[in-house]
C-alpha cells in the first residue's frame, strides 16, 4: 500500500517542481521584457582573441511575446530587416527587396543567431525543469534545463543558471539537436528600467571555435506603441523607424 502511495506522491512532487520551474521562466523573462510593447537599441560586437572584429547597431521593436522586428542601422548588413511573427521568421536584405523565409539558427553575425536578437522570451519556446544547484562566480544558482517546445525555438536545449534568490539569469549553455554544446552566454550586467532590473549586457562565447565571442549591449529601452502592420512580412519594404 505504501508503495502505491509513494509513486503518485513522487509524481505530484515532480509535477510541482516542474510547475515551479515553468513559473521561474516568467520571472526570468521579466529581466528582458520590461513592457508589453517596447523599443530597444542593441549594439553587437564580435571579438576574435579579444580583438574587436566587427560591430553592428540594431533597432529592435517588440510587441508582446510573439512579434519582434529588428532593423540593422549600422554594420555590414546595414538596412537589413529581420521579422519574427508568431514562430515565423523572415529577413529582407537591402539588395533583395523581398522578404525571405529564414530559420532562427541561421547566423546573424559572430556568435549571434537570428533568434538571439529577434527572440527575448523563453517561456513561449521552452519547458523548464530544475535539475540541480550550482555556484556561478560564487553566487548560489538553480540549474534549469530548458527543452524546446516549438520548432521555432532557436536552440534545442538550454542549461540555464539563475540566481537562487530572485531567478536573475547568470549563465546559459546552448545545445544543438545533436547534443553538441554550441555556445555559452554570460549575463554580465543589468540596468534599471521602469523600476525593474533589465539585462543590459550579455557575452556569448563560441564553444566550437575557441577565441571567438560576441557581446550584446542593450543601450536604450523605451516603451513604444507599434502598429500591427509592422509585423506583416509584406510590409517590410515600407518599414522605417518609429
Amino acid at each position: 500500500m505504501r508503495r502505491f502511495l509513494t509513486v503518485p506522491l513522487l509524481m505530484i512532487l515532480l509535477a510541482c517542481q516542474n510547475l515551479a520551474a515553468q513559473d521561474a521562466l516568467d520571472r526570468i523573462d521579466a529581466y528582458r521584457v520590461p513592457y508589453q510593447e517596447f523599443y530597444l537599441e542593441l549594439m553587437i560586437k564580435t571579438f576574435q582573441n579579444d580583438k574587436l572584429d566587427e560591430s553592428a547597431l540594431f533597432h529592435v521593436y517588440i510587441r508582446g511575446d510573439e512579434q519582434n522586428l529588428v532593423l540593422e542601422k549600422e554594420g555590414r548588413n546595414r538596412d537589413m530587416k529581420i521579422l519574427y511573427n508568431e514562430e515565423k521568421m523572415w529577413v529582407q536584405l537591402p539588395s533583395a527587396r523581398r522578404p525571405i523565409r529564414i530559420t532562427p539558427i541561421q547566423r546573424l553575425m559572430g556568435q549571434a543567431s537570428n533568434g538571439d536578437v529577434a527572440r527575448v522570451s523563453y517561456k513561449n519556446d521552452y519547458q523548464a525543469v530544475k535539475i540541480g544547484e550550482e555556484k556561478i562566480d560564487g553566487i548560489p544558482c538553480d540549474k534549469l534545463q530548458l527543452e524546446a517546445q516549438k520548432a521555432s525555438a532557436t536552440y534545442q536545449k538550454i542549461i540555464l543558471y539563475v540566481r537562487k534568490e530572485d531567478y536573475q539569469p547568470r549563465k546559459a549553455e546552448f545545445y544543438l539537436l545533436s547534443g553538441k554544446h554550441y555556445k555559452t552566454a554570460f549575463y554580465d550586467a543589468y540596468q534599471n528600467v521602469n523600476g525593474h532590473p533589465i539585462l543590459s549586457r550579455m557575452t556569448i562565447v563560441d564553444e566550437i571555435r575557441p577565441g571567438q565571442k560576441t557581446t550584446f549591449e542593450y543601450l536604450d529601452i523605451r516603451e513604444k506603441s507599434i502598429p500591427i502592420k509592422y509585423f506583416n512580412k509584406n510590409y517590410l519594404i515600407h518599414v522605417r523607424d518609429l
Binding site: 523565409r101 529564414i102 530559420t103 520548432a151 521555432s152 532557436t154
Partner: peptide, 12 residues
C-alpha cells in the same frame, strides 16, 4: 509558398 521545417530547413 514558403514554409520552415525544423530549425534549419526552408522549402518554397
Amino acid at each position: 509558398f514558403a514554409y520552415v521545417l525544423g530549425d534549419r530547413l526552408e522549402i518554397h
